[in-house]
Each structure stands twice: as structure tokens, then as C-alpha cells.
Design a protein around this nucleic acid. Structure first.
Ligand SMILES: [Zn+2]
Ligand SMILES: [Zn+2]
Ligand SMILES: [Zn+2]
Ligand SMILES: [Zn+2]
Lengths: 140, 140
DNA sequence: GCTAAAAGCTCCAGTCACTAGAGGATCAAG
DNA sequence: CTTGATCCTCTAGTGACTGGAGCTTTTAGC
């Protein structure tokens, strides 16, 4: 009675049906049992597992990291050092991304602020793109 | 004498040879003339054009936007409103990305700060991933 | 019980901006 | 003349899905 079709699982988790099949194909979800007519049947444990995957994806963890985190989540008595390590590495990666985007942001804002908004021949946007030496930053 | 092989063009611009061919295939670079033995020959104008493309890519502009910017750069007497508009749209997109990443960053930092760093069963990282209601933010 | 819509299945292709490799031709240097 | 570098085209792979074709099965209304 608590078994779900793929459609109901999709509804329960907010994950699209093709995405659920995709997660199965890449080993994030185990192959579920099937009905006589070959349809997938999921239990509540899969609901939890899929929510975990979804949440981790929303937080930007990659498939490989999620596979590791799921394996760890199933071993409650072991140390969480590795799990925390994955999160910390992710944090560092996000910080790098933010730093790069912020530098970019400032550069583009400057271009726009400096542009007299007239013709292309005096457009700061085009000028900066055409000539790297007009850049604020050292290198990209 | 100022004509370059694809390898020299790559050297002059820092763009890899396969990437130059790729840019040609998607219409960012025009098909260049060839030697008798079918090798591409580039002039100085292409060097400038490729630098422009490269710089725009480094700033995160997408292929379609770059195609538009190149077309505008070739029409110096027209208004730069559109060019500025592309840059402004890009700025907004970057701001959105930074906002999302910053929220993410804070969330992951909190998970890590709250974790007693002991066993998986008490690991805050695993707990938050397993249960969305433990999140700080409203929704993702 | 019948029929039509909805949901399921598999497999394949497309996204973005490259990157890498196979397999072959041609060029430059010694 | 030979060897190694460079060039050519074409194909496939990356990550994380998304969408469609073409098919079978279930479900709901009548
Ligand atoms: Zn302008
Ligand atoms: Zn620059
Ligand atoms: Zn922990
Ligand atoms: Zn959350």
C-alpha cells in the first residue's frame, strides 16, 4: 500500500520522472522491483533517498560526492570526518566561484559606468572587449 | 607575410587549435581561405576578432551574445544601446548567480559549524541533507 | 465491456562550450 | 630522405539532465 509508481514518486519529491530514471542509470538510486508489466515500484526508503539526492543537488554537490555522502549516511557509526570534508571542499569551491564572479561583476559594471552611451565607436563595452589592455584586472 | 597558420594563430591568442576550429564551426569565426593543401590561413583581422571572442568568453558572455557583440562592433556608427543592454543583462545574471551562491555558501558553512564532528549519526551535514526542514532558507 | 486519455516503458538525441582521440595527409628541419 | 611536428576531418565524451519517438499498459468514464 505504501508502494509508489514512478509518477507518484515524482509527485512526492518534486523530481521529474525522467530525472528519476536518470538517477537510476547513474547509480544514485538502486534498480527498484517491477510489476508484472515491468513498471517500477518504489518504497518509502527510496522517497527519503531521493529527497536526500535532490537536496544535495540543490546545494550544488556533484553526483560523485552525493554517491559518497549516501554511502556514509548508511553507516551511522563511522566518523563523519569524510562527510564534513566533502562539504568543506564544496564550500571552498563555492568561495572560489563567488570571488571570480565578483571580480567579473565589478569589471562589467565599470565598463557600463564608463560608457558615454552614444555610438559603437565610443562604446566602452566594445572597447574593453576588443582590447584586453583596457581591463581593470591583471589576468583572467 | 602576416598570414598565420592555425597553430600560429593559437599561439598569438592563447586559444587552442581545436577551439579555433570549434569557433569556426559555430559561426564565431568566418571560414578562412586555405592553402593548396587545404590548410587554414588567417590574417591580422582574425587575430583581433579571436581576441575579442576570447575576452568576451572569459567575461562569461555566451556564444549568442558574442555573435551579437561582434556584429555590433562592425557597425561603429550605430547606437551602442543594444551592446550595453547585453552587458547589463549579463551583469544581472551574474548578480543572481552570486546571490544564490552566497546563500548556499552560508548554509554549508552553518552545517559545518553546527557539526560536532563525531559520528555520522550526529553529523549535521548528513542531517541537513536528509531533511529539508533542517534548512535555514525557505526554499531552494 | 469499451474506449480514450494518461502513464509507463526503452532508446536516442540535444543542451553548452569545448576537449580529446583516431586515422590520415603534409610540411619543415636535419 | 626521414622523422617529427603540424595540419586535416570526423566522432565521441564531458555533467546533469531534458525531451521526443514509438510502443505497451493502466485507469476512468460511460
Ligand atoms: Zn556602450
Ligand atoms: Zn580582460
Ligand atoms: Zn559531520
Ligand atoms: Zn534546503
Amino acid at each position: 500500500m505504501s508502494l509508489l509508481t514512478i509518477g507518484k514518486l515524482a509527485e512526492a519529491t518534486g523530481v521529474k520522472v525522467p530525472t528519476i530514471r536518470y538517477y537510476e542509470s547513474v547509480g544514485l538510486l538502486p534498480e527498484p522491483p517491477r510489476t508484472d508489466s515491468n513498471r517500477r515500484l518504489y518504497d518509502q526508503e527510496t522517497v527519503r533517498r531521493l529527497r536526500f539526492i535532490r537536496h544535495a543537488r540543490e546545494m550544488g554537490f556533484e553526483t560523485d560526492a552525493i554517491r559518497d555522502l549516501l554511502r556514509m549516511a548508511a553507516q551511522p557509526d563511522r566518523s563523519c570526518r569524510q562527510a564534513d570534508g566533502i562539504a568543506r571542499a564544496h564550500l571552498t569551491a563555492i568561495d572560489d566561484k563567488i570571488a571570480r564572479l565578483t571580480a567579473l561583476r565589478d569589471e562589467i559594471e565599470h565598463m557600463l559606468a564608463d560608457c558615454p552611451q552614444d555610438h559603437i565607436y565610443s562604446c566602452k563595452v566594445i572597447e574593453v572587449l576588443a582590447d584586453h589592455s583596457h581591463c581593470l584586472h591583471a589576468e583572467h
